[in-house]
Amino acid sequence: MTMADQPENIRYTADVVAVTNDGRVLLIKRGWDPYEGHWALPGGHVDRGETGLRAAVRELEEETSVRVTEDELRLVGIWDQPDRDPRGRYVTVTYLATVPADTQATAGDDARDARWWPLTDLPERLAFDHADILAAVLRLPAS
C-alpha cells in the first residue's frame, strides 16, 4: 500500500460567518499560531460527540459572546482543500448567521479582538482560506 492509499488524519472544524442586516461581518483577531494576529472567522474544533452545528454555536459564543441558536444558522458549505491549514488536514463546515445591526461582540476564549467589519472593506489579509469563504457567502442568494 502506498502513502496515497492510506487514510489521512483529518480534523473537523466549524466556522461561522455572522453578518448584520446592515452589511457587516464579525471577525476575530487570532491570538495564536498559525496566523497569529490575523483576522479570521469565529470557529474551531468540533468536540467529541458534538455536531458541526452545535460546535458553530458554541465557538461563536466562546470567541465573540454572540449567541445564536442552531435554528438561526444556515449551511454555507464545506471547505476541504488539502492545504488550507498549515497544521495538517482540516475540513471545516461553515454556517451563516444573520443578526441585528446592534449586536455587540466581545473577544473571549482565544481571540485577541472581535470586531464588526463592513463586507465592502475587509482587512487586507485574512487567516486560512477565510477570504474564499466570505466570497462564497457574498455570492449566496438572499433567503
Rank of each mutant, 00 (worst) to 15 (best):
M1K: 06
M3G: 08
A4Y: 12
D5I: 02
N9G: 01
I10H: 03
R11C: 10
R11M: 14
R11T: 15
T13N: 14
T13I: 11
A14D: 11
D15V: 04
V16C: 07
V17G: 03
A18G: 07
T20E: 05
T20A: 07
T20F: 01
N21I: 10
N21H: 13
D22Y: 02
D22V: 13
G23W: 06
R24P: 02
V25S: 00
V25F: 02
V25D: 04
L26P: 01
L27A: 02
K29F: 01
R30E: 14
R30I: 08
G31S: 08
D33K: 11
D33S: 14
Y35W: 15
E36L: 05
E36C: 14
H38Y: 15
A40P: 05
A40V: 07
L41W: 04
L41A: 08
L41M: 09
G43C: 05
G44L: 10
G44V: 12
D47G: 13
G49T: 10
G49D: 15
T51R: 08
T51Y: 11
T51P: 10
G52M: 02
R54F: 06
A56F: 09
R58I: 11
L60A: 08
E61V: 03
E62A: 15
T64W: 11
S65C: 08
R67N: 11
R67D: 09
D71K: 14
D71S: 14
E72A: 09
L73K: 04
L75I: 12
V76P: 10
G77W: 00
G77L: 03
P82F: 03
P82W: 08
D83E: 11
R84I: 10
P86S: 14
G88S: 07
Y90V: 15
Y90A: 09
V93R: 13
T94S: 12
T94N: 08
A97K: 00
A97H: 05
T98L: 13
A101K: 03
D102H: 10
Q104G: 03
A105K: 05
T106C: 12
G108D: 09
D110N: 15
R112F: 06
D113K: 06
A114W: 01
R115L: 11
W116P: 02
P118L: 09
P118H: 04
L119E: 00
D121V: 05
L122A: 04
L122I: 04
L122G: 00
E124P: 00
E124G: 01
E124D: 11
R125M: 14
A127D: 04
H130G: 07
A131C: 06
I133E: 12
I133D: 07
I133G: 02
A135C: 00
V137W: 09
V137G: 01
V137L: 08
L138D: 08
L138H: 02
L138C: 09
R139V: 08
L140Q: 12
L140G: 07
P141C: 04
A142V: 13
S143M: 04
